[in-house]
């Protein structure tokens, strides 16, 4: 009997300790949990992008994204559709240790690779409602490099965070993020402009788990002020594929 009581209290102690641990999570720890939902060091993705204007006109894009983490973070974005931008490719090499970022653009019409200024990351990505930084949400961003988070509330398995921007390249005044505790994934993010007016609402859905990596297969970005929106759909994904570092070079771009 004593043994059973001991086991009961041990189990009770375990659950209570887990509960109190969860309650003690602060905002940055939640961000850490969100980051850890993606363990892959590389990926290969095929994405579709639908751009909607305020009047409802639609344009679509198809692109492939390759990403490889390491001393230098490497990302390659190639456009497959439509015809007028097909073949266009961006190469981003981010050497965080040396605080050096190099961007290259391949334009089929020129048939050559050009280094482009870092400011090209400002503004929107190929006419969409996403900035380059928004795009990194899909690519498994290191949120803690860009934000400090403060827990606002926790209700019904959803944690609400207030995001303070720490990366000077991000032009929002602050953000809010709603994180699902069962998946440790954001399901909604709001960004506010410098006048602290709501600018964008990002809604993530169609959650999936592939090779131990959790992700959203659909991201909708709505620009509240422009009344435009962009839907990004993940068509195919391969985590930790054998990627040749040679594809993240200007030589490879030139060969396209």
């Amino acid at each position: 009997m004593l043994k059973k009581i001991t086991i009961f209290f041990l189990i009770l102690f375990f659950f209570i300790s887990q509960l109190s641990l969860a309650q003690k999570l602060d905002g940055n720890q939640v961000l850490e949990k969100v980051e850890s939902s993606r363990q892959a060091k590389s990926h290969k993705m095929k994405m579709e992008m639908e751009l909607y204007s305020s009047s409802g006109d639609m344009r679509s894009r198809e692109l492939n994204n390759y990403r490889l983490e390491g001393e230098v973070e490497r990302s390659l974005m190639q456009f497959a559709e439509p015809a007028d931008i097909s073949g266009t490719a961006f190469l981003l090499l981010d050497d965080q240790a040396n605080n050096q970022e190099d961007m290259y653009l391949y334009l089929p019409a020129l048939g050559s690779v050009r280094k482009i200024s870092g400011s090209q990351k400002n503004g929107n990505f190929v006419g969409s409602d996403l900035t380059y930084n928004d795009l990194s949400i899909f690519s498994g961003a290191n949120f803690r490099d860009n934000y400090q988070a403060e827990m606002i509330s926790e209700d019904n398995g959803i944690i609400e965070l207030q995001l303070e921007i720490t990366d000077p390249d991000i032009d929002y005044s602050y953000g809010k993020m709603w994180v699902r505790k069962d998946l440790w994934l954001a399901e909604k993010i709001e960004y506010y402009d410098q006048q602290e007016e709501l600018l964008k609402v990002i809604t993530l859905s169609n959650f999936d788990e592939i090779d131990g990596n959790r992700l959203a297969r659909r991201i909708e970005v709505e620009n509240i002020q422009k009344e435009s929106r962009t839907i990004l759909k993940l068509v195919e994904v391969d985590f930790d594929p054998e990627l040749d570092p040679g594809i993240f070079t200007t030589r490879y771009l030139q060969r396209q």
Partner: peptide
Amino acid sequence: LDYKFDNNL
């Protein structure tokens, strides 16, 4: 020199 602003200019 070249520069792209946040408003896409």
